[in-house]
Amino acid sequence: MLSRVAENLYWLGRDLERVENIARMAEVSHTVSVESGGTDGDQHAWDAVLAATGSLELYSKAQQDDPLLTPAEFLLLSSANPNSLRRTLVVARALARELREQLSREVWEEINRIYLDVHATRTDFRDFRDGMHAFCDQVRSGVASILGLFDNTVLMDEGRDWFRCGVYLERADMTSRIVDTKYFVLLPTAQDIGGALDRSQWVAVLRSASAWQAFRMTHRGAITGPRVATMLVRSEQFPRSLYFCVRAFRRHFEAASDRTPAGQTVHVARELALLDLDLASVDEAALVQQGVHEFMDGFQGRLIEVDRLVHEHIFHVLPSVA
């Protein structure tokens, strides 16, 4: 497979996964803020998502120019925010268009459809409350359809593995950011820990990661920060946990690079093996001892390294003539 095509499929996976994550997090923030009725929790709920998508500082700046700009609009529809759902989707659709001959007609048309839907949504939507749920729902089911169509209409070859690598890397990154923002942005005061606010925020974290039901199915006891974080890091069964994503990435990477010279693959393979081993050894006590924020920070750094190695040694390498 052409290196450029492999790279584009990888990024298509990343961008689509990111679009779905933004929509899901926005939906949760929206419910939380409506429920808390515009108290402090309101702004906090949005700050967490803005931080997780790297848009917090950009938002503060944009808000100075336009005091009426809502976090929802900035996060979802703004063309000025390079991390917004709209902009991410525009990039994904451009990639898909470039990759068109690699995708099935069904996959392409679904990507095109959600792109057209999001494009049709008014950008000056000041009071976005009424349409929020429908909008996010539409985008989420669109991405879910694409992932499903990819599995059911696209050849199970190298390209599909690169696409999946992109999906899982982005998903691991987003899950770790969702947990991290709870500590970083919503940092509870000592007396809050274990209180009602703390608990509701952890439920929001679980819902942001689509993990609320999965948590309840696997944990009978109280909802505590360490238990939630441990599940999202270490679960072998939950398809958005860090451990699950890293192992899936590793599996797809091995399949995708099956015929790539070992001299090229060794760099990524080594990093993945270490990450896999390290995650396997994590438990609640270790996580608490290290500190959830510190752990997530370190994890994100290692994902960045994996991403860099894939580009340097697989996508961008200039092979020698055999």
Partner: peptide, 24 residues
């Protein structure tokens, strides 16, 4: 067939190759 851009191809010894993940 493969759809290539200029940057996907290299010429070596008057032979044209495309850059694939598995080599040239």
């Amino acid at each position: 067939v493969d759809l290539v851009e200029g940057r996907d191809l290299i010429v070596h010894d008057q032979t044209v190759y495309l850059r694939a993940t598995t080599g040239l």
